[in-house]
Nucleic acid binder design. Sequence first.
DNA 1: TATATTGTTACACC
DNA 2: TGGTGTAACAATAT
Length: 307
Amino acid sequence: MPELPEVETIKRDLNKPAAGKIIAALKINPKRCFKLRGLKQAKFLNLPVLEFKKKIIGLKIASVDRRAKNLIFKLTDNRLPKNQAKFLLIHLKMTGQLIYRQADGLRIAGGHFIKNGEKNLPNKYTQLTFIFNDRSRLFFNDLRQFGWVHFLNQTELNNRLAKLGPEPLTPQFTFKIFQAILKKSPDKKIKALLLDQEKIAGLGNIYADEVCFYGRARPQRQIKSLQLQDQRKLFLGIKAILKKAIEKRGSSINSYLDAQGQPGGYAPFLKVYGRSNKKCFICRSLIKKIKLAGRGAHFCPQCQMKS
DNA sequence: TATATTGTTACACC
DNA sequence: TGGTGTAACAATAT
């Protein structure tokens, strides 16, 4: 489940090898993408396959960026002026992978773990393969097929990203801004707000639970019940937890893999996520799990205040 | 065999 | 209007 730290890790790892490479060819797995399901087109693309290929082949990957949980490949063409850049907007959703492999080696970039999937590529979950001018390849695999790859121009890209909330790790995301966001949804539950990409960008189920624990507030608490002190702790939690998770290259819940094909190192730091009925590290109470906003929510009934 | 899993969107309902 | 709950998407582990 790539959330902000995992997508950021992939972005950083992909930038080095992929930036500057020219896309020489694209392979789409027809069996996987439409034949087996009786579809005429690959639904993870926003264009018909032939059109998609025609637009992209020959373009250079100028850079890899991230906004919320989206990856953005900036594509340029030496024949065009710089302001003509095009973009690939990629969302890995729950189980998407981007695996980069040199023509001669084993360097890979991560995503959701697929059993032995990194060993033989392409595998049966591979939907799209980028083949670069130096014969290195980038595989887009997706076990559950929720992820997508969209080709966009600058205006379309801007429109697609317009509704996202602030990036939590930027200096622009201040306590004042956070307070203003809270003020707009007094009746919402804390975790629902943390998960809402239009409020704050990049938190998913794992880190939202962890932020609530850091803030010593139950995920189901209403925003308006938060004291100034609680607001501060939650704000600090967002920054601290995401920062540390990036340092540790993400969490390997469901065996997410990082750029070297290794598990992310944050899992041992998780305090509540995936720990239901286990002892709280602080007070030894048993961690509880409830359903909230359609998702599992984990919390310590002793450490995290009801109101 | 039934259930839980989750990022995002769509939709019904209060 | 805004919040909530549920379904959908999909394939896996338990």
